[in-house]
Simulated scan of single mutants.
Amino acid sequence: MARPSLREKIIESGVQTLHERGYSGAGVREITADAGVPQGCFTNHFRSKEAFASVVLDRYHQRTQVIMDTTLRDEKLPAVDRLRAYFDEITRWLEEAGWRYGCLVGNLSLEMSEHSEVLRSHLIEVCRSLTDAFADVLRIGQGQGEISRDLDADDIATFLLASWEGAMMRMKVDRSPQPIEQFKRVLFATVLQPPR
């Protein structure tokens, strides 16, 4: 089996490095040291740290999409069960990290939206993709009478992503699953109810 390229090593390691240290806390020295590659390799593969962060964000988003494929897009499950499966799967991911790191999308949104137009624009695209995935399953649930049509699916999806990111932010501060569990309890007891 071929060895991964140095670029690939930097990207794969970079997901964890940026997730754990943040953009500002991870210089090129830390990024390459964590990847186990010479520091000079970075500039051979990335024109800037912003460009690198964009690639890392895409890789992280691809991993999220895999989870969405097995949960939100699982046509064997009713819509509400798909959403529950998605949040439960991400919760397992967060637990494995000791409730410390939250979501890279949310972390970069808080840290970089005022400092990098390149990353801010890229984060808008990623958030739109996440919101669209939620909206798709919500529309399915509404069409099947499983979720009330009182609210627009796009509005609910935007609310879901914002609330979920907020719960993960609070989880990081508390280093506790409680904000995540509270989010899920309220969501499934209120917003994701069938028509009355």
Rank of each mutant, 00 (worst) to 15 (best):
Q144E: 15
L18E: 08
A162L: 04
V80F: 01
M168D: 01
R139S: 08
A162Q: 01
I11K: 11
A53F: 09
S148Y: 08
P195C: 11
V118R: 06
W99V: 00
H45V: 06
L119K: 05
R100W: 03
Q182L: 13
G98C: 03
G36F: 05
V118G: 00
G36T: 06
G40S: 13
L72D: 00
H61Y: 11
A162Y: 00
V66A: 11
I180K: 03
M168T: 06
I67T: 11
Q144S: 14
D74P: 06
T131F: 01
Y86D: 05
T70H: 14
M1T: 11
S48P: 00
L119D: 01
A26N: 07
S113W: 08
D154Q: 08
I140N: 09
V37T: 12
I156L: 13
C41Q: 15
I140V: 13
A2C: 04
A97R: 14
W164F: 13
V191Q: 06
Q39M: 14
A35L: 10
A2Q: 14
I180S: 05
L104I: 12
S113H: 08
F188T: 02
A189V: 01
F42C: 11
Q62E: 15
G14V: 11
M112N: 00
T91D: 05
Q182N: 07
V80C: 04
G27Y: 13
F134T: 06
G40I: 14
L6R: 15
M68H: 04
R59P: 03
W93I: 07
V37E: 02
H45W: 11
Q178K: 13
T91F: 02
S5Q: 12
P177C: 02
V186A: 09
T17Y: 02
F188D: 10
S129T: 15
A2L: 12
D88R: 13
I10G: 01
T43K: 11
G141F: 04
I10L: 11
R196C: 01
E12I: 10
E165R: 02
D58K: 08
A26V: 07
D132H: 05
E12D: 13
P177G: 05
A79N: 05
I10S: 04
M68C: 07
A189I: 02
N107C: 09
I90K: 00
F183S: 03
V186K: 07
I156W: 10
R59T: 12
R185P: 02
H122F: 02
E95H: 08
Y60L: 02
V66P: 00
L83G: 02
D136M: 14
P179E: 04
V186C: 03
S148W: 14
K184C: 03
L72M: 07
V173Y: 05
T70Y: 14
E12A: 15
Q62A: 09
D88K: 13
R47N: 10
C103K: 00
V118Q: 07
R3K: 14
E125I: 10
L57A: 06
H122R: 12
Y101K: 10
A33G: 07
L108I: 06
E125T: 15
A85E: 09
T70N: 14
S148M: 09
H61D: 08
R170S: 11
S109V: 02
D155Q: 14
A79Q: 05
E20Y: 12
